[in-house]
Amino acid sequence: MKMVFSRKQLGIPYALFLILFVVAPLFVIIYYAFTNGSGQFTISNLTDFFTNPNTLGTLCYSFVLAFTTTCVCLLIAYPVAYILARSEWKAKSIILMIFITPMWINFTLRITALKEILTLFEKNLAYFPFLNSVIGMSYDFLPFMILPLYTTLTKLDQSLIEASCDLGAGPVQSFLRVTLPLSTPGIISGVSMVFLPAMTNYVVLDMLYNSTYIMGSLIGSYFSAYDWNNGSMIALVLLAIICIFTFFGNNADEDSQARGGAML
């Protein structure tokens, strides 16, 4: 019997690839998170995570750091995206390109450059760890916030804003009641592009002042201590946070490619 070719069959290699290297690792993480070193089922990794002041402190610190970074990025990126989207400059697309270009430069090299500049002003970066973390992460992640905001704001129907002005809303009111709510998808996808990396990208802090105290670094330190079980538990907690984000940002799906989507 001759096999009948169908285009569906082309999906098989990638399906196997995804199951083997994307789905299977997640199950392995779950397995390790709920077993101890000798392979017996336990929930002590979970209870340890929520009773150990060290891990809890790290979780809180990461949240505060990620929240601050996200706010800073949003406060800078929103006006930038808003001005660019509303402007009638001819070079608009080129200016956007200039804002996005740093995404393509290796981030460790960009942080090296930032470190040299900050050192010039502060002498020792370890004196202001929180401030420098926020500066470093905002510097690194700003383009990821600008892109989805710009995409949403350019798609926005101008006549709605005109309508709100005609109906007697002032510029502030029509911004708050029309523009801002309509740009929520962009805000959500921008926030998820910045918040999660800010909780996990410990290399930025490590490079700036040789110390890390966020969720990502916990995985790193358990990994170097050969403690796969507790490391997996941290990864699982991060996954749970990611799931919550994806759940709330479901409609922003298309923009989540923004990680490098400027080229698409």
Binding site: V22, V23, L26, I29, S192, L196, P197, M199, T200, N201, Y202, G216, I219, G220, A235, L238, L239, I242, F245, T246, S256, Q257, R259
Partner: peptide, 9 residues
């Protein structure tokens, strides 16, 4: 999944 997941994970 790999798109939204943290690279560390």
């Amino acid at each position: 999944i790999p798109v939204v997941n943290a690279d560390v994970v």
